[in-house]
Amino acid sequence: MAHTVEPAKPRGDEEAVAPASDETAPRRRRTPAPYLLITPALILLAVVLLWPIVQMVWYSLTSFTTRNLLPNQPGPEWNGFAHYQQLLTDPTFWTILRNTVVVCVLMVGITMVLGTLVGLLLHKMPKWFAGFVSIGMMLAWATPALSASLVFRWLFLPERGLVNVVLDRMPDWLVGSGWLEYNWFLEPGSLFSVLIMVIVWQSFPFVAVSVLAGLKSIPNELYEAARMDGASAWKAFWNVTFPMLRPLFALLLVLQIIWDLRVFTQLYILANSFQNQDVYLLSYYIYQQGFSASPANYGMGSAIAVVMTVMILGVTAYYLRIMIRQGETR
């Protein structure tokens, strides 16, 4: 969709106007108006999203199961850092944490490399062709997580899934045999492979289109200078493209990490049960503790949630740094 990243005239002015208006437009008069205007949004955010963060930390320090929700039972009881101690010594948790990190790194890595390559490719191609490919990519991007997960489950289904059928028909010396009955959804290795594929399929278009937009902002003179100096395409990428787009890459990386750490819906459909702890990821573990374990263990679930939130906030801090540097908070 080449036209989408074309110089958009009306937006262009906006860019020109925004910094100027930052100094002149905002009124410095002391009025309660801005506070009145943000209050409704702030209240809603506080009740729905901020307060639960506080509660999450509190619950993680208490012993809290469904039993404590019954009418005549005491509420959650303080038990200090017992959940965290338990987690630290629990090999299951460490396995899940490790799997989450590994799967996330693979998802992000493959998405970034593939997206960047496709962005570079589209930049080299004539406009009509780039537009054609972009439309295709948009289909992948726009498909709801649930639909995408179901399609991939169907594609990789034992006996009738297209992937299994095709692999089975391919020569045995190339791919081995016995693919028709192969169940991708039992073992962590194969299930995570399919999961990574779904995520990469859905997220590389965003990276590709963003990189394409970024490439168009690099003056061609730089590449010409590089060519005069005899730089290869590889060198030109690392010495011209990458430094120019460093802020974009940093931002894309942060967003991808945050989005991929939290993957839930796709795993919920692909794993299709909570039977097999080997295929859990952190978000899945949290949900299982809170809503599928019997009795549901809200305290433990919250402790895992705190671990996950801390990981994400660490990445968010980096994101904020980028945003503040770019003046987005001004």
Binding site: L49, P52, I53, M56, I258, L261, R262, F264, L282, S283, I286, Y287, G290, A305, V306, M308, T309, I312, L313, V315, T316, Y319
Partner: peptide
């Protein structure tokens, strides 16, 4: 940025 999945 705070994930819904963690806070659920």
């Amino acid at each position: 940025m705070v994930p819904m999945e963690a806070m659920i």
